[in-house]
């Protein structure tokens, strides 16, 4: 009895801590008052303002574009790394490859951002590519730091599942070069999806690396939001938070339902 009470109290306090700030922000997004904190009445005015704010809308579209491209490329490269490290024994300078594929995980983003920026500038000087900083440079940077995260997800899935099914497929006559597409890829598909989602979130969330590597026409949503809230509060950003929360919650509910039906099967 006592134990379960302690459990409920711990979980209640823990989840309250996690949700209180987010919910406060959502509540204030319906505040009529321009001065964010003083409650004047319920209103959807800031949502209207938000949808008229071209800067935010544009940044949002850029972010979605960069994040989905980055997630896709990072997933492809990450799957290649995961597969290489678990299924291919002959890799030149294997420890170096492992080092390269895992150290972005432990590299502070400010150092990553700085190094990539310096690299783009030097490479522009040397070979004229990339011609300028912009969406492409942000994209390359995001792919680079997301790859490691995808790779680790794929790798742990590949090393935990029964290799016998690949051998069984060979035994049943599947040609070696088809094994990946016919067996491995479908089996690890859930991990590929979660890898993609993680890479997407990482890109959508990134401020620091994008701040270093962005250029004209490549202001992502975090950059715009940051410039708005750096010095003060912004009711439009409150409205934006509420919308993002809503999207996340819908995605989470879907995820939950899909998971639950999978378990039932």
């Amino acid at each position: 009895m006592n134990k379960s009470l302690l459990k409920i109290i711990t979980l209640a306090i823990g989840f309250m801590f996690l949700y209180f700030p987010i919910l406060t922000l959502i509540a204030y997004s319906f505040n009529e008052n321009k001065r964010v904190m003083l409650w004047k009445g319920f209103s959807l005015k800031w949502y209207g303002k938000l949808f008229q704010n071209e800067q935010i809308i544009e940044a949002f579209l850029i972010s979605i574009k960069v994040a989905s491209l980055s997630a896709t490329f990072a997933t492809i490269l990450g799957v290649m790394i995961g597969y290489s490290l678990t299924r291919i024994s002959k890799i030149p300078a294997r420890p170096f490859f492992i080092f390269l594929s895992s150290s972005p995980l432990v590299m502070p983003e400010i150092i990553l951002g700085l190094s990539l920026l310096l690299f783009f500038i030097s490479s522009n000087h040397l070979i004229g590519f990339p011609s300028s900083k912009g969406q492409l440079t942000v994209l390359i940077s995001h792919i680079t730091f997301s790859v490691a995260f995808v790779a680790i997800i794929i790798q742990s899935r590949l090393s935990s599942y029964d290799k016998n099914i690949e051998e069984a497929a060979q035994d049943l006559g599947t040609l070696p070069n088809k094994i990946f597409w016919k067996i491995t890829a479908p089996v690890i598909f859930p991990s590929i999806v979660s890898g993609w989602l993680l890479a997407f979130t990482l890109s959508l969330d990134d401020l620091v690396v994008a701040s270093f590597t962005n250029g004209p026409g490549a202001n992502t949503l975090p950059i715009v939001v940051f410039s708005k809230v750096r010095l003060g509060l912004s009711p439009e950003v409150n409205a934006l938070s509420a919308i993002i929360m809503l999207i996340v919650i819908i995605a989470a509910v879907f995820y939950y339902l899909i998971n639950r039906s999978n378990i039932k099967k």
Binding site: I22, T24, L25, D205, P222, V225, F226, V229, I244, M245
Partner: peptide, 12 residues
Amino acid sequence: TSFLLRVYAWKV
């Protein structure tokens, strides 16, 4: 949920 917005929430 966006990291930046969660920090901002505390500012609010």
